[in-house]
Design a binder for these strands. Structure first.
Lengths: 204, 204
DNA sequence: TCGATGATCTAGCAATGCTAGAAAATCTAG
DNA sequence: CTAGATTTTCTAGCATTGCTAGATCATCGA
């Protein structure tokens, strides 16, 4: 048989990665509706059935895999914020990092939260990377000077709030140019008015 | 020619309504991916091209029309809440009404906020019904005992928060059964802890 | 060199949104 | 009541989609 050993395994793994990279690039550049199995096959210079060798569940499984890379990146972005600064500063950093990610990788974010995907959520089988993003929110909340009684519930609400802003923004539903105002309003709501100098939010 | 006059006009209008009803029913029962032009044509007992007579932009325009009926219903639901009660009570009524609508008509809500749709948002041409829902949020906020400085921005954030909860809930991302806790947490956040007796949220 | 095993491709299916052109129905004129 | 014009509707088809069965090609061990 072909080198069933390390070399072949590495080739397969690389080809899998190329499929995911092609899918994500295509999606970010032209939207998910442009991510067809034929175009993906073209991109990796193989025929369509090869895709199904890597992802037996087909296109949906590819979207899922892209979503998981997104969850990983989001977890890293939210997990590396440090715990210096005031309540409001840490909260602002969290919100900004989240919205930044959603804004920089809109199609990936769609895969994570909008598109149908083969991941069990809110379950014992939920992948660790998915949980880690949520944990970053929880931990920021529990570090507040006066943390909410029920941190878990508060984290769900805060997550909902940032996700809502991201989703509405992405769908073009919010007034353009008010992003910073919204962030400050949310931060004040969650972290309280005091505890930090005004950030002088003036960035575009 | 055919009765170009009132009768014919009424027939056309009725057929248009039947298309929309069929689309909405199908979507609520089997999801939007089941809403195909062939199935719609079957449902109204005409052939596919008839659909394009009513909706020249095709399927997307049908989804758009369903979304607009949804915005209308949402505006009615949020606009008929009355201004009795404490800050927290009014805010709770608003949030509940919004999440209720989203929960009762998930596919319609998808059309309004998830699917691509031919409506100009955040623009001068935004349909009135779309604006009215937002206005209900704004008005509830401005009636608070101590309203936020920037009601418009606060309304965007609150809208984001409820939409986020609705979206995450719909996508199965939130712990089941905690809905009431989340609502109370959000209400407390926006309307302040005081001003109302605890509602004893114990409903399923 | 040959047969077996694995990898890959070709070609096709059923379903989708949409549309051109034929057919049918309806109205107006005589 | 009939004939022509007009409007309405349908049939049939295109290109695209996700996916897959079966043929073809490459690689390996003996």
């Amino acid at each position: 048989m072909a080198p069933s050993s390390p070399r072949r395994a590495r080739q397969l793994s690389e080809r899998r990665d190329r499929i995911l990279a092609a899918a994500r690039d295509l999606a970010e550049e032209q939207g998910w509706e442009a991510v067809t199995t034929r175009r993906l096959a073209d991109a990796i210079e193989y025929s369509q059935p090869v895709l199904y060798g890597h992802f037996p569940q087909g296109r949906t499984e590819i979207v899922t895999a892209v979503a998981l890379t997104g969850f990983e990146e989001l977890a890293v972005a939210l997990g590396s914020l440090g715990d210096a600064g005031s309540d409001a500063e840490r909260m602002r950093a969290l919100v900004r990092a989240y919205l930044d990610f959603a804004g920089r990788h809109p199609a990936t974010y769609d895969a994570m939260f909008l598109l149908p995907v083969l991941v069990p959520f809110a379950s014992d089988d939920t992948p660790a990377v998915v949980r880690q993003g949520f944990d970053a929110i929880t931990s920021t909340l529990s570090r507040l000077e006066s943390p909410p009684d029920d941190v878990g519930t508060a984290a769900e609400v805060l997550w909902g709030a940032v996700h809502g802003l991201a989703a509405l923004h992405r769908a073009g539903r919010l007034a353009a140019g008010n992003e910073d105002l919204r962030i400050e309003a949310l931060v004040r709501l969650v972290a309280g008015g005091a505890g930090s100098r005004d950030p002088g939010a003036s960035a575009g």
